[in-house]
Each structure stands twice: as C-alpha cells, then as structure tokens.
C-alpha cells in the first residue's frame, strides 16, 4: 500500500519548488538591477539632463516628467475614484445598475495598457486637441488607475463597521455628515494605500504615454501642462532599444531609479496596511 504521508511530503516539496521558481527570480531581478545600477547613481545622474544622444549625462527631465504625470493622474483620479467608492459603499443598492458599475470597473482594470494609449490619443490628443502633452498623458493615466483607487477605497470604506454608521445616524447626523465625520476618517489608511498603489502603477506604465505625452529626447523641462515631457519608463525603453551603444551603466541606473520609485511606493502601501490592520480600534 502506498504511504499517504510520503505522497504528501513529495507533493509539498513540489509546491515549495514552484514557489521558489517565482520568488527566486523576483529576488534575482531586484538584486541584479540594484547591483549593476547602483554604480551609475550619483547626484549628477539624478540632476543632469541627458547629453550626447542620451549616451552620457543624467535623467533629470525624465524624473521630473514622471512626477508631473503622476501628480496630474492623481489629481484627476483621486476625487473621482473616492466619490465613486463612496457611491458604491454607501449609496448603491444591490440592483442591476450596481452590477453594471462593478462590471465596468472590472473591465476598466482589464483594458490593456496600450489600448489606454490609443484611447488617450483619440480623445485627448486628437479630438480635444490637447496635443501630445502632460495634460493628455495625465488624464490617460488617471483613467487607467481609476479602478485601483475605486476598489481599494471601497474596501476601506466597507471595512468601517456598520454599527458606527447606525450610531451616528441615531444621533441625528445626516447621511453625508456620517460619511464625512465617521466613515471617511476611519477609512483613510485604506484610501491612502490605494492612492499610493495607483501612483506606483502610473509611474511605471509606458504604453499609455507612448502617443499621448512621451518625448523621445527633450533636454529641457516642460513649462506648462500643454508641453510634452520625458518620462522614466519611456526613457528606459528608448535607451534600451532605440539608441545603440548606450553605456550599460546608464541603462541599469535608469532601471534602478524607476524600480526603486515603484517598489518604494508599494512598500509604503504594504506598511501602512500592515500597521493599521494591527492598530485597528474595533
């Protein structure tokens, strides 16, 4: 007779192996980029413009461009996403409309990033005549991160106990007062987590900004939201594939800055979530 415990040991070993197959490469990717990118990082690299066809110099305009784009995306997406989350968690009933909204959010989250790029091109750049600009790129990225912000904010709002709402209402507070003074303050960590994850996503995406904002090479900083801008992920793409003979150090350095930015955002989000889960008052 086969020994079921031996079968279990073998099976668990393979499950463990599969896990290693995911985790080890992730670790390797991070280690390689840090190891090879770190020597490139210097104050000059971070603060100088790219020079000599991007083969020397720094990545300052790309960093600034990414910060502008992400800021614009959040300014657009946070209010809409938060209000949408409030609608879903506090106002919507379990009906057909709500199901359609949920499906729309799921789809918005699933639309390929390059299709967002097409959409931004057609609507903002061409139809609304914003041109390839920070405005077009920010709006495109903003719509892309909307589902992240809605979903995480909604979860945060729904995790506030129903009893708090009842108490507030029973004291004669209106529905909006209850949301404003009781529900929202207690959902802030979750909303913050969602916002930070949204920032991380917007900072790392390339395809949506390809035709809506990204400049191949623009050695000065943008003056207005109607200017084109460089952006870190696109810059990494350009110097990896479009420009021959770029020093490997610069490529790794750029990859490291982008990765560090995105992972830092995610780390902050994870820490906030972890801390507040532990400190929850109810």
């Amino acid at each position: 007779m086969r020994n079921p415990y031996r079968a279990q040991r073998i099976a668990f070993f393979f499950l463990f192996l599969a896990t290693l197959l995911i985790v080890v490469p992730v670790g390797l990717i991070v280690v390689i980029i840090v190891q090879k990118g770190l020597p490139a990082i210097s104050w000059q690299f971070l603060s100088d413009i790219p020079r000599h066809g991007m083969r020397v110099g720094g990545i300052f305009p790309a960093i600034v461009g990414t910060i502008y784009l992400v800021t614009g995306a959040i300014i657009f997406a946070l209010p809409i996403g938060l209000l949408a989350a409030i609608y879903l968690s506090e106002y919507s009933k379990d009906n057909f409309l709500t199901r359609i909204i949920r499906l729309a959010i799921v789809n918005l989250a699933g639309v390929p990033s390059v299709v967002y790029g097409l959409f931004g091109l057609a609507l903002f750049v061409v139809f609304l005549k914003f041109g390839a600009s920070i405005l077009s790129g920010s709006l495109t990225l903003g719509i892309m991160i909307l589902p992240i912000i809605i979903t995480t904010s909604r979860e945060a709002l729904e995790s506030v106990p129903q009893s708090f709402r009842e108490v507030s209402l029973s004291l004669g507070a209106s529905k909006w007062q209850t949301i404003r003074h009781i529900v929202l303050p207690n959902a802030i960590p979750g909303i913050l987590t969602g916002t930070i994850l949204g920032i991380g996503r917007a900072a790392g995406e390339t395809a949506p900004i390809l035709f809506t904002v990204a400049a191949f090479y623009l050695p000065q900083l943008p003056d207005s939201i109607f200017d084109q801008a460089m952006a870190l992920p696109y810059h990494l793409y350009v110097i990896s594939t479009q420009v021959p003979n770029v020093d490997e150090k610069i490529r790794y350095g750029t990859a490291l800055v982008l990765l560090a930015l995105v992972l830092f955002m995610n780390l902050v989000a994870i820490i906030i979530r972890y801390k507040f889960r532990k400190r929850k008052k109810w």
Binding site: T19, I22, V23, V26, G27, I29, V30, I32, I33, S113, G200, R201, A203, G204, E205, T206, P233, Y234, L236, Y237, S240, T241, E248, R251, A255, L258, L259, V262, L263, M265, N266, I270
Partner: peptide, 24 residues
C-alpha cells in the same frame, strides 16, 4: 513574506521586466 514578494513582482513595471529579459 511570500505574499509581499508576489505583490512586489506584480508591481515591477513591464518595461523593467522587458529590459531585464533583454539583458539576461
């Protein structure tokens, strides 16, 4: 820890993965 690791993988921008794929 594993869940955090998986989340990190999900967060790595695709252009970075593309770059790493190219060079390794």
């Amino acid at each position: 820890a594993l869940k955090a690791g998986i989340e990190l993988l999900a967060a790595i921008p695709s252009v970075v993965l593309g770059f790493i794929g190219m060079v390794t």
